[in-house]
Design a protein around this nucleic acid. Structure first.
Lengths: 243, 243
DNA sequence: CGCGAGGAATTGTCCGACAATCGTACGATC
DNA sequence: GATCGTACGATTGTCGGACAATTCCTCGCG
């Protein structure tokens, strides 16, 4: 008979410490906002050196599970912020040679149902944010960078109106990838600004009227316009997004 | 006249080192698979202490940008693996009190178009993976944990057939969240196993026939079944996923 | 050309130290 | 009584050095 041994894995101490801390955060023994003991104290409790604790803390900081309030040295437990997580995701996507086509395709799939859901769920507050974003775009689209930012911001507010955190977090990386590609497109396509403005207004109106169908349709058209824009701007859709 | 001062931010050295290394990875000076200089050498080049370098490296390791091959001490540059990134995302979602309803809703939006796209793009290899996953589920669904795993795995193979990395990476966290919730459901719903088997077969057949419409429809039905399952199992959909 | 041995290199961990900065409690001031 | 300034203690960021345990790598051998 052959005996199967478990694989021996000697985790370094700093990883064990990180795991232990993470476990406490995930099981909510340590909660959002709780202050962590000092490094010296943690070192004492875990029976390791302070340097080891520091390495573990860096890992958790990078995952967004620990953070320090700006201008403070106190380490507090945090729930990873959406933007922070999304940054990691878009970094990963860039490194995996994502193309303009990929981004556009994902937007095509995601945004229309998001708009549809938003129309059914939006509160008055959401509506305010959405119309404000549309207004901002209309008012500040002279500068390319700003135009791109506000175009993405509009989609972000629509996403927030779904009140579904998965959808929000899921499409945030898309927006982060979209923004620079919009910067490359908007200036080369004269009619882009006005078409975006129109689409945003139609979408806003539909969401205001709780017209799910209309929101979906107009969002689909909005996204289709992006693709046209890329084509008119002469951007090769199969090109990698990363330069 | 009012002078605007730039915000002063004194980044600690370990963060600067991490940023510098990350920049090199993002601009592809350092590429996937490249070996990093030793800690001592990095410390010399950056003009900081080795401890400082180590803290920086831990951050990048946690982001998935650096890693060591199993059983090796050599640090190599890596592109963050999808599962690794997705784990971070699902952790974040759990901590943000995601509900069963949220997961189901996101699946409803994402999976049908994914199946549709997959039907149009699948290669023979993809098809092999998909049918194999379906076969595995049919053969190994006695054990609950395995059944849940293979149910998720099936969706994973369908996602891979889209050849769109954004979609793949975007729905991986969903699968990670789905799996444990399936474990909680499958056993309480006698007809779950056979309904899943049927749906998988129909979806596979549609994808094989390149029938986009059929793939979408059957996937939608498949996902709707999950919801029915939760209801029959008496799971409160508004409950947080994290216990 | 494959392969094993042994020295060199590297990592993981510890210790101790110190300046800069932050947190806080206490007293002074309005 | 509330606000403010200050001084002191606590904490972090960084450094230097040290050492055992492994892994890497070269070189000589079969």
């Amino acid at each position: 008979m052959s005996i199967e041994f478990e694989q021996i894995r000697l985790e370094p101490a700093y990883r064990k410490v990180a795991s232990a801390l993470m476990a406490r955060i995930l099981d909510r023994t340590l909660r959002d906002g709780d202050r962590l003991p000092s490094e010296t104290e943690l070192a004492r409790q875990f029976g390791v050196n302070r340097s080891t604790v520091r390495e573990a803390v860096r890992e958790l900081e990078s995952s967004g599970l620990l953070a320090r309030r700006p201008g403070s040295k106190l380490l507090v437990v945090t729930r990873p912020a959406a933007v922070h997580v999304a940054e990691g995701v878009s970094r990963a996507l860039m490194l995996h040679d994502v193309t303009y086509q990929d981004v556009w395709e994902a937007l095509t799939i995601l945004e229309p149902p998001i708009a549809e859901t938003a129309a059914g769920r939006r509160t008055e507050t959401d509506l305010g944010e959405i119309t404000r974003a549309a207004t901002e775009f209309a008012a500040n689209n002279a500068e390319t960078a700003r135009a791109a930012f506000h175009a993405a911001q509009f989609l972000r507010t629509v996403g927030a109106a779904t009140h579904n955190r998965i959808l929000m977090l899921g499409h945030e990386p898309l927006l982060q990838l979209l923004e620079p590609s919009l910067r490359a497109m908007i200036d080369k396509v004269p009619q882009a600004r006005s078409r975006i403005t129109t689409a945003q207004r139609r979408i806003s109106e539909a969401i205001q009227a709780r017209d799910s169908e209309g929101a979906r349709t107009w969002m689909a058209r909005h996204i289709r316009d992006f693709r046209k824009g890329y084509e008119i701007a002469g951007i090769d859709l199969t090109r990698r997004l990363a330069e």
